[in-house]
Simulated assay, not measured.
Amino acid sequence: MTAPSTARQSLSGRVALVTGASRGIGRAIAVRLAAHGASLVATSSARSAEALEGVCAEIAAQGGQAATVIADLADAEARADLVARASSYFGAVDILVNNAAAMPEFAPPSRMSLAGRQQLFAINLDAPLDLCQQALPAMRSNGWGRILNISSDTVRQPPVPYPASADMVHALAVYGASKAALERVTQGLAAELHGSGVQVNALAPSRIARTESAERIATEMAKTHPEWVESVETMAEAAYQLIAGPSTGLCISSRALLQQWQAPLRALDGHTVLGDCMTPGVA
């Protein structure tokens, strides 16, 4: 894998759609892409509408432009025209970040209900693929596009001894299966689109990103393994590098990418250097 230049590259003139953008990794990636000049369309479900507006206000305060679209990604009809709605603000979407994910039931495979599995796969696999299919015609026509699917370290069964309680590890198995399926689709789509100018990659936290929803487990892990916890800035940096860079078909962790490409870790402003791939997210 050839590493690209780590110099800041402009995304001016590009339109990015980021799902699950009201907080955590989605918010961080949205703010970071806007810092490089991309026009942002941020989406979330209705229950996060207020927080989503706050993200757009944050981007506007930094001189960027952003708009919001509300959609329930678990509902096939509600997401059927999401890319078209997003494109009505700043033009065709040419950067798609499929970040939104859900785990409706915290249960091991032996007990997770069919309804829970169906909703989990609807949001974690079906929705990203639907949005890819919606965005691809314009990307192909323009000869340029970037699709980034956010995956998870849970795609692999952890070795014994487990890094967390056995109950937690088992309860993450079906969630991990949905992300493993997303990675397989990522690689297949990247191969299908070879030579089109559209690049497709998947990115996961190295272990766990310190987000609002993961704060409890991140705090616990940081007591004994601070190196297992990373900041959302780490994911945002790696996401930017993949979107600005030349690679396709990668399914890689944030820290592995930054280490292999020798990229510094910058703040969400895209300028301030915070450290490197080994900087823990324990603040």
Results as ranks from 00 to 15, higher is better:
31 V>L: 10
276 D>T: 09
42 A>G: 05
120 L>G: 10
4 P>R: 13
119 Q>R: 15
281 G>W: 10
37 G>A: 08
132 C>L: 07
178 S>Y: 13
65 Q>D: 10
259 Q>I: 00
85 R>L: 03
203 L>G: 10
77 E>R: 15
20 G>N: 03
200 V>E: 05
190 A>W: 07
52 L>D: 00
135 A>E: 01
105 E>D: 05
104 P>W: 11
247 S>R: 15
3 A>T: 05
62 Q>N: 14
238 A>E: 07
25 I>F: 01
132 C>Y: 05
165 S>F: 03
236 A>M: 11
38 A>Y: 06
220 E>K: 11
93 V>S: 04
274 L>K: 13
237 E>Y: 07
67 A>Q: 15
52 L>W: 00
254 S>P: 00
190 A>H: 03
107 A>L: 15
181 A>M: 09
102 A>D: 13
152 S>R: 01
239 A>N: 02
262 Q>S: 11
127 A>M: 07
185 V>L: 13
79 R>F: 01
202 A>I: 04
45 S>Q: 09
121 F>M: 15
157 Q>N: 02
39 S>V: 05
183 E>K: 04
45 S>L: 08
179 K>N: 07
11 L>R: 03
155 V>F: 02
265 L>Q: 04
43 T>L: 04
144 W>I: 08
43 T>W: 05
197 G>N: 00
55 V>T: 03
187 Q>N: 08
234 T>G: 00
230 E>M: 10
154 T>H: 09
77 E>N: 13
214 A>T: 14
81 D>I: 01
145 G>D: 11
70 I>W: 09
267 A>Y: 06
84 A>N: 12
46 A>H: 11
210 R>S: 05
229 V>G: 00
73 L>W: 08
9 Q>Y: 11
118 Q>L: 14
224 T>E: 14
208 I>G: 05
143 G>S: 09
64 G>V: 04
48 S>V: 06
242 L>T: 01
80 A>G: 02
129 L>M: 15
101 A>S: 14
182 L>K: 12
75 D>V: 12
158 P>R: 09
169 V>W: 10
8 R>K: 14
101 A>P: 08
257 L>K: 09
23 R>Q: 12
89 Y>S: 13
256 A>F: 07
150 I>E: 09
226 P>S: 05
208 I>R: 09
280 P>D: 09
